[in-house]
Amino acid sequence: MNASGKTGPLVEVEDLSVNFVTRESNVRAVNGVTFTMMPGEVLCVLGESGSGKSVTMRALMRLLPPKRSVITGKIRVAGEDVLAMSEAALRRMRGATVSMIFQEPMTAFDPVTRVGDQITEVIRLHRGVNQAAARQRALDLFELVRIPSAQQRLDAYPHELSGGLRQRAMIALALSCEPKLLLADEPTTALDATVQIQVLILLRRLQQELGMSVIFVTHDLGVAAEIADRVAVMYAGRVVESGPVRDVLRSPLHPYTAGLLASTVHDQPPGRDLETIPGAPPDMRNLPPGCSFAPRCSLAGDDCRTTTPPAIEAAPGRIARCLRVHAPEAALV
């Protein structure tokens, strides 16, 4: 790739696989995930627990335990090969190019240090500015994420902040070095409904103002609808469908996406049974051959149980891994 590439993709993941190896078992958490992402895009990785969505995200930052995890494939972030990086280069990337926010903000903060001091310290470390400048920047960040009475809140300890404020403070911390890419791992899942929507709107606004790219991991279709440009639906360690959020939510291609949409409770008439996907996700230590969704799929045939479906581009920008989905040319024949 040429290095001029401001117009090139920010993230390229090719055939990423992550195995967790222990003495007794081999968990195939991610099995050949491929996606690219342009600068300024918001990609939602949608999936249920155990689908490999968080593991994919951590692999992007190489945050997985090196002894127990085997990562194969290619990850390039801002043109650099993440899997080949030295520890020093990795440290520079984390925070400066890529930053991460989590479901539980308490994990990101030291409980016995004031939040303002923590953010100030990070800014000084990464930017080499003096204390006063760093403090001013921290205050600007708190105002950016709309923390009321920011000046006083800088001097608060993490436990003194409410859940929503803590989440905002963590976003401020993550933005302190102006990352090109923000990884968000279910940052609104633990929040109350009225607070969740505030944080979602804030993230959307920040993303647009700062021109950042965001990868947003969630299990909630509604959250994806609020924030995503594109979605990638994961099931059993694979991206089974990806495409623009509008198209995927309106006319899902993959039976799993369709089932997920149908079984999400949202103003269905009471008194009638909800549509469900029968069965449960597969054991990741012992994945079935062929399509992992076949055992739960109403459209599955014998071919699904033997052949792993290839990625098919059914429409421009829309990819599905399902034998029942056809490329447009094939459909015309």
Partner: peptide, 13 residues
């Protein structure tokens, strides 16, 4: 506050 499940009808405020 419920997410709209419709990308064309996002909550603006």
């Amino acid at each position: 506050s419920r997410p709209a499940l419709d990308p064309d009808n996002r909550r603006l405020e």
